[in-house]
Design a protein around this nucleic acid. Sequence first.
DNA 1: TGGGGGACCTTTTTT
DNA 2: AGGTCCCCCA
Length: 648
Amino acid sequence: MSKESPALKGLNPKQQEAVQTIDGPVLILAGAGSGKTRALTHRVAYLLEKGVAPENILAITFTNKAAGEIKERVQKLIKSQRTPLMGTFHSLCVRILRMNADKVGYGKNFVIYDSDDQKSLVKQIMIEKGFDPKKTAPNAILGRISWAKNKMIGWKKFKDQYGEEDFYNKTVTAVYEDYQQSLQKFNAMDFDDLIMLTVQLLKKDKNTAEKYQKLFKYILVDEYQDTNMSQYELVKILSEKYKNLFVIGDDYQSIYGWRNADIRNILNFEKDYPNAKIIEMTQNYRSTKKIIEAAQHIIQKNEDQRHKKLWTENDDGQTIKIVEVANEREEGKYVIEAIKKSQGRGIKLKDTAVLYRTHAQSRAIEESFLKANIPYKIIGGVKFYERREVKDILAYLRFISNPEDIISFGRVYNIPPRKIGKVSYNKILAEYQKKIPVMQVLEDSDYPAFHLLHALLKGFMTKSEEYSVTKLAKHILDRIAYKEYLDPTGKSLDGQARWENIQELFTVTKKYDKEKPREGLAKFLEEVALIQETDKLDKGSDVVTLMTVHSAKGLEFPQIFMIGMEEHLFPHARSIMEPKELAEERRLCYVGITRAMRDLHMTFCRQRTIFGSSENTLPSRFLLELPGHLVDFQQDTSVDEDDIVYYS
DNA sequence: TGGGGGACCTTTTTT
DNA sequence: AGGTCCCCCA
């Protein structure tokens, strides 16, 4: 080990190899807790140390938070004025597209639609085209469109390939075309477009492609097992010139197949990049031997994986607690009691996370925490940026930023109520189809309510040229009397909470107040569109974290509770029929178990309330697979007094 | 026009 | 059980 190199300090031999192999394609198979982030960070530092210019390094991570952390840690290792470009696939693509929007037929101030916006647009199109959104779920259509985009199949190609198939595909074909053209007309992109359009751009325009290929001499991709085909293509094109491509991941932790991630990207890496170097990192630094062994038991049943064995020098540790309870309330009680006991052993609340398979489980467990007065935070669920009040104000800002955005207008026109109903809105929509801008329609109308709205919005647009984002947002709230709209009496708890959410939004807008007004607004809207829930997770406050297993990926906690370990819930009912999906549930379970450093509790209920009615349940097959010497089974026979339990 | 009330449908995971 | 959608009345 070179003493001079801080980038190589404190690494095991495998990690050192990963850091030092800088030329050509490299695949790191990094088991859970094997120091993946560490290897990535040190590799960036090592490149800088070797004199590679920061702008020639591109690091793609799964979340913006991960990017931020790596940035921070790199700076601790090596002092550099400029930092390499680090971010998610989506943020990288936005960056490229902002500079080249005209080349793909968009204006450079395009907006990004979230799933809500997508859904309203699809619904609108379905109705126009005479499809019944109740018969064919808009989400199903969107799922198919997303699938196509992830496979780089645009609407024309989709029409050629699937346009004549079954009714479902015919519907998708019809909607897809309109959907895509509407997006372009609105100057809006959905998440999948960001990647697809970037790849299309680079394929079409060799000069642009070459520019980025020359720029990104060293490319690093984290969580490679969760990349989809369009992302795979993007990476392939960008790395074509220098082929200094470093990917890191773990096929055991591939849990985004439903989002069209393709596990074959990691399984076939050396086929795609023939002289690739492959390094396995299998020493785990996170968990006890028992936890590792349990995880290994779960995962080894999967075929079609790169079989590797995780090992650790850590202690044996405690046995895993498996707990049977009567129902969700008892489950909550068990979790609370166990947490209280663990506090006695010096485990802090922030050292603990409760993981569940579905968001629907969060409500019951949340109630237990409320009742016990133990502070907690929930990651995900109804996300901050999807809350009604936040979306309302964002819709105003988005429409001001981009008056073509009729979906945002659809949110704005009658909030708060100003006597413009669906009928009037449809008139505007009809005019809009004839390519008359919304603002024009409002102005030309002889309906007074339209004039008022026009004046209001026009005023906002003028102010947006001179006001900072915060000032503009406050101005809007003030002018539309939003606070009064939320809570006319000032007494409802709900209204207060909503108003507080809006106040919280200002902590984000403030970051952009120093920018030029319009630019600050655009940047703010962009951050909001791409932010992730786990990005907000800060280690500061001493509270228990509640989240789905998916959200827990990449995190670790001394104490983990996996609740609802029941058949049909985990593995989920929707996955049981399909071996591929079942394999993914298994990997998800593996991810959950390997989040735990020392203590792991897994609970299951005999009965669970599903859609309001109580159903009998069976323990998860995953629990039954754990060998006896690793687990400590505990049956909680106490029941609520009015619960009668039948259990066979 | 919009709010209230009832029917009905929902729950997988999210950038 | 809870949210959403739709219809009808004021």
